[in-house]
């Protein structure tokens, strides 16, 4: 056997991109468990539908692009996109919602740009936003958490909700964020007493706060495993916290909600640890990621409070995806031996 010829280094750490994706999937488990516990099995339908669609569309596109299918499917990136979308969608939405959303995410937002690593926008968020704009009704109906009133649909009901023409209306209820946004008559403490969702919970609405907590736990695990650095999540959460503190207005009727409400409601933790940490579509350097996170945090608050959509993570992330190259350009690290960081747009003197 001829001796091998290769460039150094001749050794590498054992971690692979697929491992990273698997870790991300694993870290989502607590969040999913919480979702099932508080919102029922609906999320599992979403997961299954999204997952299958993702694999199918990824395989189809790889085939069309003449790439080895098995090799690229095994990087698990399609499944991560699918899972992110699945947990972001309202449970018990009709089956075509996850299918259309995932296909859009994989085909349009990922593979048409050249596949993993080449997509400028977060595919899951593209899928989500496309759905939200196209099917606003289906996308905004959230069932009430298990601990509040109606009770959850059982398996059979779930089936007919997803695949039949059963209407989910009977189970739904406004989310805490919507409640706070539409309120301008009563002060916060009263609102917390009157609204069942808020009353049953402790800080940010029943169910919601637990789901966010679960995603936080998963996110901290990923941080611990060094899958990403602290910069983006901390940037986003800090910005959100600061802004909501400023606009808390000490809980008056015009208050935009407490900082804790903003941190533990909606898709905040999911966004902070699982979506804006998607390396492909965010800024490259750590400093850039900090700014990226801060930008997302600000936009989330702005859209939540003054926009016309109930939650804002998806829009905020996409907007910041646009800004990522700009951030990159202004956050180049200072290379060893250089007095100042060099801009890619600047020529050497």
């Amino acid at each position: 056997m001829a001796l091998m010829h290769a460039s150094s280094p001749h050794t590498a750490q054992p971690q692979t991109s697929a491992n990273i994706m698997q870790l991300v999937l694993a870290a989502m488990v607590p969040g999913i468990v919480a979702l099932v516990a508080y919102f029922g099995v609906g999320v599992l339908f979403n997961l299954a539908l999204c997952g299958l669609t993702a694999l199918a569309s990824e395989a189809l596109m790889l085939k069309l692009r003449g790439r080895p299918i098995g090799f690229y499917l095994r990087d698990y990136s399609a499944l991560v996109t699918a899972a992110l979308l699945a947990v972001a969608l309202p449970p018990y939405c009709p089956w075509w919602i996850p299918v259309v959303g995932t296909a859009t995410a994989i085909i349009l937002a990922k593979q048409l740009y050249g596949g993993l690593g080449f997509n400028p926008f977060n595919p899951a968020m593209v899928g989500y936003v496309v759905l939200l704009i196209s099917f606003p009704v289906e996308m905004t109906l959230w069932v009430a958490p298990a601990t509040v009133e109606h009770g959850l649909p059982d398996i059979e009901e779930a089936f007919s909700l997803v695949f039949g023409n059963y209407q989910v209306d009977g189970f739904t209820m406004a989310t805490p964020l919507e409640i706070v946004r539409h309120n301008n008559s009563i002060i916060m403490s009263q609102l917390y007493n009157e609204e069942p969702v808020l009353a049953k919970g402790s800080i940010a609405g029943a169910g919601w706060e637990m789901v966010n907590l679960a995603f936080l736990v998963g996110g901290l695990y990923l941080l611990y495993r060094k899958v990403f650095t602290w910069h983006a999540p901390v940037g986003m959460l800090a910005a959100l916290f600061l802004l909501s503190t400023v606009f808390y207005d000490s809980g008056s009727s015009l208050s935009e909600g407490s900082p804790l409400l903003h941190l533990f409601s909606g898709a905040t933790m999911l966004g902070a640890f699982f979506i804006i940490t998607d390396p492909v579509s965010s800024a490259t350097s750590t400093r850039g990621r900090l700014y990226f996170g801060i930008g997302v945090g600000i936009l989330v608050f702005v859209i939540r409070v003054w926009g016309s959509y109930p939650d804002a993570v998806a829009f905020a992330v996409l907007l910041m995806n646009f800004a990522a190259p700009l951030i990159d350009n202004y956050t180049l690290p200072r290379t060893y031996g250089h007095a100042a960081p060099r801009r890619a747009t600047e020529k050497e003197d």
Partner: peptide
Amino acid sequence: QPCIRCGICA
């Protein structure tokens, strides 16, 4: 595999 721009290298 494709670069996922994870930034670990940086």
